[in-house]
Design a protein around this nucleic acid. Structure first.
Length: 254
DNA sequence: GTTCTAGAAC
DNA sequence: GTTCTAGAAC
């Protein structure tokens, strides 16, 4: 049986956390300089991004009047589409029901870090309307259930929320414990994306959709990622990521 | 989103 | 000299 959305298999590159892989850490770069932020700020484009460069069976995609036809190698092969693929992988799925699926973040920024994704293709919060309200509430509820099921006995605090300008396509709710004890947390952008207003509380997003019918974000979000590093527990300023990470240890409940 | 690395910061 | 950050990745 053919999966219409994902007609070909994309292999995930396993991250080199395995010491055995150390010797061939060098790998081809697959860089793409397209601006992610601008991309995320645009409206959803239904139908776009489902074709592949090497798909013999799907020859004719309705050509979008001349200009920005899908000329470049992108779409599903592009890193920003990775969630669409991960969420389909049973090995990644921690929970699923008719509306949503939960996977572990591939590069967790804390001891517990999950993503709740709807099966429905919603590119980002920009595309969210009141008709998605119940879905957003369900995503939140499922997030809380996953916490209860997998970290219920821990005393860790959790937050649920969305990045104001996500890098990855497909709406995803972050469910993340507040220890931020993870080797994948490496830079200022990582920290500030979860510890400034760049992180939009799920509850606030739900209320915004309820009241305004859509999600709007204040200007200057990219600048928030460059703000000085401040401890989320005691507000202390730290001069570098290594020093922040060392500081965080004193708040651990371990 | 990550990796890699030049050169700034210490 | 070493640590650390920040920008490119065709």
């Amino acid at each position: 049986m053919v999966n219409e959305l994902y007609p070909y298999i994309v292999e995930f590159e396993e991250e080199a956390k395995n010491p055995d892989l150390e010797t061939h850490r060098k790998r081809k770069r697959s860089g793409n300089s397209d601006s992610v932020e601008r991309d995320a700020a645009q409206e959803a484009e239904p139908g776009a991004g489902l074709e592949t460069a090497s798909s013999p069976s799907q020859c004719s995609v309705p050509p979008k009047k001349g200009k920005d036809a899908p000329t470049k190698k992108e779409s599903l092969g592009h890193w920003s589409q990775g969630l669409k693929i991960s969420m389909q992988d049973p090995k990644m799925q921690v929970y699923k029901d008719e509306q949503v699926v939960v996977i572990k973040d591939k590069y967790p920024k804390a001891r517990h870090h999950w993503l709740v994704l709807p099966w429905a293709s919603i590119s980002s919060l920009r595309a969210v309307t009141r008709e998605h309200l119940e879905l957003l509430k369900h995503m939140h509820t499922v997030g809380e259930k996953v916490i209860a099921d997998f970290a219920g006995s821990s005393k860790l605090r959790f937050r649920l929320g969305y990045h104001a300008i996500p890098s990855m396509s497909h709406v995803h709710l972050h469910v993340i414990s507040q220890d931020f004890d993870s080797p994948c947390l490496k830079n200022k952008k990582h920290w500030n994306s979860f510890n400034t207003e760049y992180f939009l509380e799920s509850q606030a997003v739900i209320e915004m959709v309820q009241k305004a019918g859509r999600v709007t974000v204040r200007d200057g979000m990219p600048d928030l990622l460059k703000q000085p590093l401040r401890c989320h527990e005691c507000q202390q300023l730290l001069p570098s990521i290594p020093q922040l990470k060392e500081h965080l240890k004193k708040h651990w409940t371990k």
